[in-house]
């Protein structure tokens, strides 16, 4: 038990390049591996991974670049993503299922269906999204380990 307390919290940061579709998904893959190594329950890993994947794709699809921070606590996992980019004009509208400003390129990849943010909200325990137009967007979400 003492070991567990010493172990957490820890954090990792990852840089995500906007427009770099070649490796889109690689950060989420790394996040999943870290959580697997920590032996969190599969359901927790799955929820964090899905939300992280959607968030990573959002930075790649819409922003210039972003930093994703994974914070691992013994009883919850938090992910925060800050990007520099065009921002979101209307956050409520962006949260609406089916609303999308995706380009054809994004749609060709199988994304841009307007489901990402609502999927993140559904799969996490808490989610906060704020944005300043022409500056960037801050997204953070949290998944409890024991719910």
């Amino acid at each position: 038990m003492e070991q567990t307390e010493e172990r957490y919290p820890f954090h990792n940061t990852f840089r995500i390049e906007g427009g770099n579709f070649t490796h889109a998904g690689s950060v989420s893959s790394q996040v999943k591996r870290i959580l697997k190594e920590e032996r969190f329950p599969n359901s927790v890993i799955r929820r964090v991974s899905i939300a992280t994947f959607e968030a990573e794709m959002n930075v790649i699809c819409y922003a210039h670049w972003g930093i994703l921070t994974l914070l691992v606590f013994s009883d919850f996992i938090k992910v925060a993503i800050d990007d520099e980019g065009p921002g979101i004009h209307d956050v409520d509208q962006a949260m609406t299922e089916g609303f999308s400003t995706a380009s054809d390129k994004i749609r060709e990849l199988g994304f841009g269906a307007g489901m990402g943010l609502s999927n993140i909200k559904k799969v996490t325990d808490e989610m906060v999204l704020t944005s300043v137009v022409n500056q960037g967007t801050h997204l953070e979400f949290m998944v409890k380990v024991f719910s």
């Binding site: 579709f21 070649t22 490796h23 889109a24 998904g25 690689s26 989420s28 893959s29 999943k32 599969n42 799955r46 991974s49 899905i50 992280t52 994947f53 794709m57 060709e108 990849l109 199988g110 994304f111």
Partner: peptide
């Protein structure tokens, strides 16, 4: 879907 993202997606959701 013939993109590398389908492989990453498969990975993150096991």
């Amino acid at each position: 879907n013939m993109t590398p993202q389908v492989i990453y997606t498969a990975d993150v959701v096991d």
